[in-house]
Design a protein around this nucleic acid. Structure first.
Lengths: 347, 347
DNA sequence: GTGAAAGCGCTAACAC
DNA sequence: GTGTTAGCGCTTTCAC
């Protein structure tokens, strides 16, 4: 990119300043500049000084790409997400604060598959980045089981199946039990459940918790009250419409996550049902939107920041050659807001 | 990394699968694999098929790093942030949704300077990534004026000074006027202002709007009521303590952003001042925390998602060789919650 | 239609 | 102390 004019001075081209530009300008070889820049021993003080001056003057900064191609280590941790939305971004905040001071830089990557989430995005991203750009990765809600890879990996909200990477998650069964039990305590007996993404353990475990609480209360499980929402508001809408237009419609809905719960709220509104007078809705996650909806959403709050922070700490441990647990479960907490209330009279 | 056993089959080493592994396995040369993978013309159908099969079998994916070192273009857009916190992360959501379908991938990068924000982090990150890893960049709240660089850049909440890159921001002067005017309408006359980061135009313009509204209402500007908060809760605390322990303390505070406003709320609580009965507080940004504080924060809501989305669209335009405006201003909106109220009797 | 050679910017080994 | 050589994984001429 950069060229040298006929007078020998570097031209002010638009390209990036390379190590060769610095070497030429300082009158030394490329490896010498490399040594100076990386603080290696074996450089004369005067040479060191001269090179540093040129580096400063030219504003040279080593290219992450070139360096990482050659080196085995980059001190960069990758966070792989399908897209940047409420859930992943809350985790990111926790990861970021935990990463401060560790010496690692953060690279959050989203391949943004056109046409929705394409299964296997994380395997693809991982292959593209691992071994070169990043030293380790945190993968958020993977769509496939991550194979044992070249670099340490930690999953948040992991995929179903055995033998995946180390994973962090909320105690989904317990949280789902608490959520369902809360609705039961409010007097509800016809409680629907909007399932999450069936390939994630979290979705399966939340359904398990739901069923367990029903059973515990002696309420027969009714398959007609369980629908798929895929953790997305849009996918939930149709399911909710079916559920809420039944003649024996449920008086309460436990949605597998907040996005789904918000989808239920929208459909309820559209059908003229008042929440919580006619219908109670409880979500899961406590993303920021939960506190901003009308009515505000009652939900099982996941410690999203802490989930992210723990994942980062585990990954740093792994990177340091330490052993880490195969699975860590953090407790979720019931946050009562406005979308839940006593069962309607006459139900 | 990958080795070939004495029997000629590739060993199952832990390293990444390289193009050479695929070539060897398929019995073709490396360039041929490259052509197949990149869909170039001039490959026999049978060869194409065989290579693709090996690619699938081995799970090969081209390395972003190696490819971008050689290529001039990567189809990756970089988002450079100091750290992942409420503000930057809300922008990220907007950027992400606007980027879907454009064919660009997103790489959000945080160098996480140890010991707080180090000035110039974005210049450093940009140098490390530009020209190789990313085709263009969006820089959030830069700490220095970004020089004209090798790649297109768009700034959100730009640095002061002339001739920076194209920038997106809220209409800060107008928004600050609205905020201050609202407090005045509530009867307040002793209105303090916690300034933002003085190197950002947003902070300067918010102070300008504040002063203009005071003047408009015939209230003399009192320098003693203006303190620095640096857009951070922690930095704001001391300033707020000074302000609120004065005998002629203000009855209202206009904080330059929500983090500062939250800092004021904390100090007020600590001093036993009731908000809004004893003190009104208004913030700026409307980050998620604003709706979750006690009391909930009245604030000037920036269209954070839209700011991010616009930035992305501008960058894509720039990347496409189109002209874009030097500056785009989006309107902010007053969101009244619980932290503001009429001036206390007897003040 | 295919492969040999060169080179992107950098760092690691090893001469000198 | 410093420079020469090699090579990371890939793409791009350009012969054959």
């Amino acid at each position: 990119m950069n060229t040298v004019g006929t007078d020998g001075t570097p031209s002010l081209s638009l390209g990036r300043v390379t190590i060769a530009d610095v070497a030429r300008e300082a009158g030394v070889s490329v490896p010498t500049v490399s040594k100076v820049v990386n603080g290696r021993y074996g450089v004369a003080p005067t040479t060191f000084k001269r090179v540093m001056e040129v580096v400063a003057a030219l504003g040279y900064e080593t290219s992450l790409v070139a360096a990482s191609l050659r080196r085995q280590q980059t001190n960069v941790i990758g966070i792989l997400v399908a897209e940047f939305e409420s859930f992943s971004v809350e985790l990111l905040k926790g990861i970021s604060s935990a990463a401060t001071g560790t010496g690692y830089e953060l690279l959050a990557y989203s391949a943004l598959a056109p046409g929705g989430v394409s299964p296997g995005w994380e395997r693809r991203s991982l292959s593209r980045l691992a071994g070169t750009l990043i030293d380790g990765a945190i993968i958020v809600t993977p769509t496939v089981l991550i194979p044992t890879t070249s670099i340490p990996v930690v999953a948040i909200d992991p995929h179903t199946g055995q033998a995946g990477p180390s994973a962090i998650d909320s105690d989904n069964v317990d949280a789902a039990r608490v959520a369902t039990r809360y609705l039961i305590e409010l007097g509800h007996r016809r409680i629907a459940h909007i399932r999450g993404r069936s390939d994630l353990t979290s979705a399966q475990l939340r359904e398990t918790g739901y069923r367990e609480s029903l059973e515990e209360a002696g309420i027969a499980f009714d398959p007609a009250l369980v629908r798929d929402g895929g953790y997305q508001a849009a996918l939930t809408a149709e399911a909710a419409r079916e559920l809420l237009t039944r003649q024996d419609r449920p008086t309460a809905v436990f949605a597998a996550n907040d996005m789904s719960a918000l989808g239920v709220l929208a459909v309820a509104h559209e059908l003229g049902l008042r929440v919580p007078q006619d219908l109670s809705v409880i979500g899961f996650d406590d993303v920021p939107e939960a506190a901003r909806s009308t009515p505000q959403l009652t939900t099982m709050a996941q410690p999203l920041h802490e989930l992210g922070a723990q994942a980062l700490r585990m990954l740093v441990d792994l990177l340091g050659g330490n052993e880490v647990p195969q699975q860590v479960l953090l407790p979720a907490e019931l946050v009562v807001r406005e979308s839940t209330g006593p069962v309607p009279l006459g139900s």
